[in-house]
Design a protein around this nucleic acid. Sequence first.
DNA 1: CTTGCCCTTCCAGTCACTGGAAGCTTAAAT
DNA 2: ATTTAAGCTTCCAGTGACTGGAAGGGCAAG
Lengths: 133, 133
Amino acid sequence: MNIGEAARRSGLSAKTIRYYEETGLIAPAARAENGYRDYSDRDVHKLRFVRHARGLGFSVEECSQLLSLYQDKERHSSDVKAIAEQHLADVEDKIRELQELRNTLSHLVTCCHGDNRPDCPILEGIAEGPEDQ
Amino acid sequence: MNIGEAARRSGLSAKTIRYYEETGLIAPAARAENGYRDYSDRDVHKLRFVRHARGLGFSVEECSQLLSLYQDKERHSSDVKAIAEQHLADVEDKIRELQELRNTLSHLVTCCHGDNRPDCPILEGIAEGPEDQ
DNA sequence: CTTGCCCTTCCAGTCACTGGAAGCTTAAAT
DNA sequence: ATTTAAGCTTCCAGTGACTGGAAGGGCAAG
């Protein structure tokens, strides 16, 4: 099937599929006589795998490793788990960071009257910066 | 003072300060006779403001608006509040998104034995994708 | 006078795409 | 048969917010 059909079935855009091929995340597709890329159901399956992994927030590099492991029937599940645990830890760090951010922002927003006068605790809060400096 | 000193005092890197100038976030610095950028304490104060705003996750574009409002003594605090509220909403969306991600990931990680055998619920989970498809 | 740090500009790279131009092939509509 | 439309190809450029590095000039100390 052509790239458009593979895109439809995998949920990725044709652009993205070409990009993944160019950067080596997926193997170069077979080519039909007219030079068009030609995808099999297996290829689409791999593309869907990558899409789901990206949807879980794995980087393209991590997706590459996960895809290799997925295709390696001799893999150790510990290798997969290590990648996932690291990513999970990263996500948890990011959540904590954003929660702190949210707390600060929501405090500032609550303090600001939001009227047509110029005095604004938000701007003052930004100007002062975090206290621990 | 030179850019290095302004960098030290503002907590930004010299590279970043030049970048902010180039992209119009901050006004072009005055120049000394030798062509070096020359910063005043007021300039450093603005740079610190921008650093704090960036630290709160505001985009450079938003920082630009906030800095304008900061310098506008006729501002309406409602304009500031609108920017902050929008950003807060974005942060909250992002937190929810990451929390869902974390839940899925932590479920998968828990299910995986993480030993030297190949069977791996993480890879299976990725291959299947979210159920609602 | 040379060492070493600071400053200048400009170019390239990051990450993961996305958009668009220019030029093919193929399929459908007239 | 012709024309249009869609789909495919490659390549180049842009996104955001920097960061790194090269090439070259300024400046103070040893």
